[in-house]
Design a protein around this nucleic acid. Structure first.
Length: 473
RNA sequence: GGCCACGUAGCCAAGCGGCAAGGCAGGGGUCUGCAAAACCCCGAUCACCGGUUCGAAUCCGGUCGUGGCCUCCA
């Protein structure tokens, strides 16, 4: 499999020989998650699913940075304990990750539980002369001592100095030096260290956790493109300074979710929360929206795009509807399977992989219309969709979304008597009454029943085997 | 100012030198009591200007435009 690496600026062959180690930067849980965070994890989730499906062992590590400046600031605004705030947000985010159909990483380290190893990493960097302790008790990375600093973002120190936001001070030797350890300020949570009480700087936690759980050198490090500089550049610098060895071989970066062509971020106030997105569009549509464009580029979230994604999900789900046993030669899905693999092998080309799924869906529908057995091809479609993390639940299983009371009211208003008041039996009675009306060619009544159900958000479709109902999305 | 992406049909979006995927929307048809679903048919001189090549959406240079990053960031 080839993956584009930001480090080399080119596609690299992923060595899957003795398994794959993957580290993905998770969120700083100072607030609830939005669709941008979901996109990021969906991309790496698909990578993991695909590799495992191909029989490759994957160790998937994704962290929570549960202590940092932003979190402390938010906690103080809310007058809450920062660690407790982080824990609460993580809990919510993990529930949402489940709802999004995201695989749980094998390891989900948290900074607050990794303080000792982080201190050890910093000590190694100091011992290698690439970091120093300031009078304040802060520890800084000595940027100028690392001659390839900035290689990930393809910048050098001179270019970076032109930025005006770097400020000397706090005992830094050089303006671009960044903190590995921050000495405690009043009221902040702190842990003991050789340099006095304090907490880790922003980048050191990922370096430490990645190396601890995946080794000094590992296969793939992922995250949003907005993390390339400084976060990932600093991770690289620290890791190499600590171990003297290369860090991640491949650096994978996903593009940003935009709204109105502007990055979705708390700071711009254009966020769509994961909770809201799940409610409005559901997990499959969110996933299809993300995978329909290449993970590299930006992805503009609009209501139209999401509506289209929901309809597209329905199209795939419809192709999985049970088909009657049929004579004839069964539809062979092997070609679709290999096209799917080819697409995925090429830098996780999910838009093309999806196109293969749609082509297969069309072939299934065509085969079914032609009276060919398609069950095997349907199983392949379900399997390949599963590799992308799409569930494709049949909409008719959504009984829980229907109000039994409203349904009973409708039945009563149409003089349809039913055996019970639950959704199942009321629906059955209504559909039977309608079927009888159709046979008596009383289409007015049949249409009244269909329209009444339609008003409740239930769609009726007539098939040779009787009527089928589903919840409209 | 610097670094990095990108500009393809009404909308979303593939494409990595050899006749322009896929989805949504729209139009026509088949099927249906009518619908729905499904199936068939219909749509692009690839931002603009030069260059390289037998051949360019694809490579090179320039122009215009959009987005991301330059110590909050998925």
């Amino acid at each position: 499999m080839r993956l584009y690496s930001t480090l080399s600026g080119d596609r690299e062959e992923l060595d899957t020989g003795d398994g794959v180690g993957l580290y993905v930067c998770g969120v700083t849980p100072y607030d609830s998650a939005h669709v941008g965070h979901a996109m990021s994890l969906i991309v790496y989730d698909v990578l993991v699913r695909y590799l495992r499906w191909r029989g490759i062992q994957v160790r998937y590590v994704s962290n929570y940075t549960d202590v940092d400046d932003k979190l402390l600031e938010r906690a103080s605004q809310l007058e809450r304990d920062p660690l407790e705030l982080a824990a609460a947000n993580i809990e919510q985010w993990e529930r949402e990750q489940d709802a999004l159909g995201l695989l749980a990483p094998d390891v989900r380290p948290r900074v607050t539980a990794e303080i000792e190893p982080i201190i050890e990493t910093i000590e190694r960097i100091i011992a290698n002369d690439l970091a120093y302790v300031a009078e304040s008790g802060d520890v800084y990375f000595r940027v100028q001592a690392k001659d390839d600093y900035g290689k990930l973002s393809h910048r050098n120190i001179d270019q970076l100095r032109q930025g005006t936001r770097f400020e000397p001070g706090d005992g830094k030797e050089f303006a671009l030096d960044f903190a590995l350890w921050k000495a405690q300020k009043s009221g902040e949570p702190a842990w003991p260290s050789p340099w006095g009480p304090g907490r880790p700087g922003w980048h050191i936690e990922c370096t430490t956790m990645a190396q601890r759980y995946l080794g000094e050198t590992f296969d793939v490090h992922g995250g949003g493109v907005d993390l390339v500089f400084p976060h990932h550049d600093n991770e690289v610098a620290q890791a190499e300074a600590a171990s003297g060895r290369p860090f991640a071989r491949i650096w994978m970066h996903n593009g940003m979710v935009q709204r109105n062509h502007e990055k979705m971020a708390k700071s711009t106030g254009n966020v769509v929360g994961v909770e809201e997105a799940l409610e409005r569009w559901g997990p499959d549509a969110i996933r299809l929206f993300v995978l329909n464009s290449h993970y590299h580029g930006p992805n503009n979230l609009t209501d139209d795009a999401m509506t289209a994604a929901m309809r597209a999900v329905e199209r795939l789900a419809t192709a999985l509807r049970e088909a009657a046993d049929a004579p004839g030669a069964p539809l062979d899905a092997a070609g679709y399977r290999s096209r799917f693999i080819e697409a995925m092998e090429d830098d996780l080309a999910t838009p093309q992989a999806l196109a293969v799924l749609f082509d297969l869906a069309r072939a299934i529908n065509r085969g079914r219309d032609a009276g060919e057995p398609v069950a095997e091809a349907q199983a392949t479609l379900q399997e390949l969709a599963g590799v992308l993390g799409l569930r494709l639940d049949a909409p008719e299983t959504a009984t829980a979304q229907v109000s039994a009371a409203e349904l009973s009211k409708l039945a009563a208003s149409l003089d349809v008597s039913c055996g019970g008041t639950d959704v199942e039996s009321t629906m059955e009675a209504l559909l039977e009454r309608r079927q009888a009306a159709r046979q008596e060619r009383d289409f007015a009544l049949a249409d009244r029943i269909r329209d009444g159900l339609g008003a409740l958000g239930i769609a009726i479709e007539d098939t040779p085997d009787g009527a089928r109902w589903s919840v409209k999305r």
